[in-house]
């Protein structure tokens, strides 16, 4: 299998009654990766996911999961892919165990091995105590955790989570996110996480793709995206000194790689082409100043995100 990507989409397009929900989307997710799929509501995230699973036929283009064509071999794709839909539902009148057993049977897992597996999974997601309670008594967070157990029962190679934290309180959301990270690292599972909640995606995803009106407008590691989006490939360093003298500013400006220095009282915002924090601190000390603090601007997804959507609106 080696270099084969887990998800590979080429020119994926879906048109509903003249409305293009997904427009020539190309996507690649590698094995063991947690990929964040971002975009505002209605950007085409769920439609893309349904096409990846073979639940909706693309108007054109191909989606391959571990090499299987999702449209031609949906059964093979669904056997190795666990999908947690956005509006997840369980049979309310059945217990947690019964629901999981039904899913196991639909996956062709015999009852005997399934029994142990169900108990194990319920304890992983923290639902052992309510294993024999009807799902109608569950809170939304509990149902979501049961959903993850349902996804894992088929021992998938890839899990696709559509807004897994929607409608949960922060504590519940964090519990779900930690669970996802653990699964990915322990079992080498690839994860596609769709969400419109930026900080959550930023917390756990190695790479993100930003979807807007059916197009993938940006893709890459969060850091790299931030640099590209916000400062045309440049970094910003914020330095606070005891006293900002002209000599000090000149010294900083002369460092190779620094392109601009802005002064705001005792704080300097230095724009540079690469990470020159070491040289900056040396220059400040040499010119007799004292460094109070130095900070490399992180690129919050929020800023990246806003930048993309501002550009689009403008």
């Amino acid at each position: 299998m080696g270099g084969q990507p887990v998800i590979e989409a080429e020119g994926l397009t879906k048109v509903y009654d003249g409305f293009t929900a997904v427009d020539h989307l190309n996507l690649r997710v590698e094995r063991g990766e947690i990929f964040g799929f971002l975009g505002p509501n209605g950007a085409g995230k769920t439609t893309t996911i349904l096409m990846l699973l073979g639940l909706t036929e693309p108007t054109s283009g191909v989606a391959r999961i571990c090499g299987y064509d999702a449209t031609r071999e949906p059964l093979k794709v669904k056997r190795i892919t666990g999908y947690l839909p956005e509006n997840l539902g369980f049979y309310e009148e059945l217990t947690a165990t019964e629901n999981l057993r039904y899913i196991a049977r639909l996956n062709g897992i015999p009852d005997e091995p399934a029994r142990g597996k169900i108990q194990e999974l319920l304890s992983v997601v923290g639902l052992s105590e309510v294993a024999d309670h009807k799902v109608e008594t569950f809170s939304r967070g509990m149902k979501q955790r049961l959903g993850i157990a349902g996804v894992l029962i088929k021992e998938p190679e890839l899990i696709i989570l559509d807004e897994p934290t929607a409608g949960l309180d922060p504590e519940g959301a964090n519990a779900i996110l930690d669970l996802i990270v653990n699964l990915s690292t322990e079992q080498q599972m690839s994860v596609l996480l769709s969400s419109h909640l930026l900080h959550q995606v930023q917390r756990i995803c190695q790479r993100v793709g930003i979807l807007s009106r059916g197009r993938l407008v940006a893709e890459g590691a969060v850091e790299q995206l931030g640099r590209e989006a916000l400062s045309a490939g440049k970094l910003k360093v914020e330095v606070e000194v005891a006293e900002a003298t002209c000599a000090l500013i000149q010294a900083v400006e002369q460092i190779e790689g620094v392109s601009q220095v802005e002064r705001d009282d005792n704080t300097l915002v230095i724009t540079c082409e690469r990470d020159v924090r070491q040289q900056i601190s040396t220059a400040i000390v040499r010119s007799g100043g004292s460094l109070v603090q130095m900070k490399l601007y992180g690129y919050g997804l929020e800023e990246i995100y806003l930048r993309y959507f501002q550009e689009e609106a403008g």
């Binding site: 669904k78 639909l106 996956n107």
Partner: peptide, 11 residues
């Protein structure tokens, strides 16, 4: 939402 659950299984 149970239809989505069932259809995302290999059937």
């Amino acid at each position: 939402g149970t239809l989505g659950l069932v259809l995302s299984q290999p059937i």
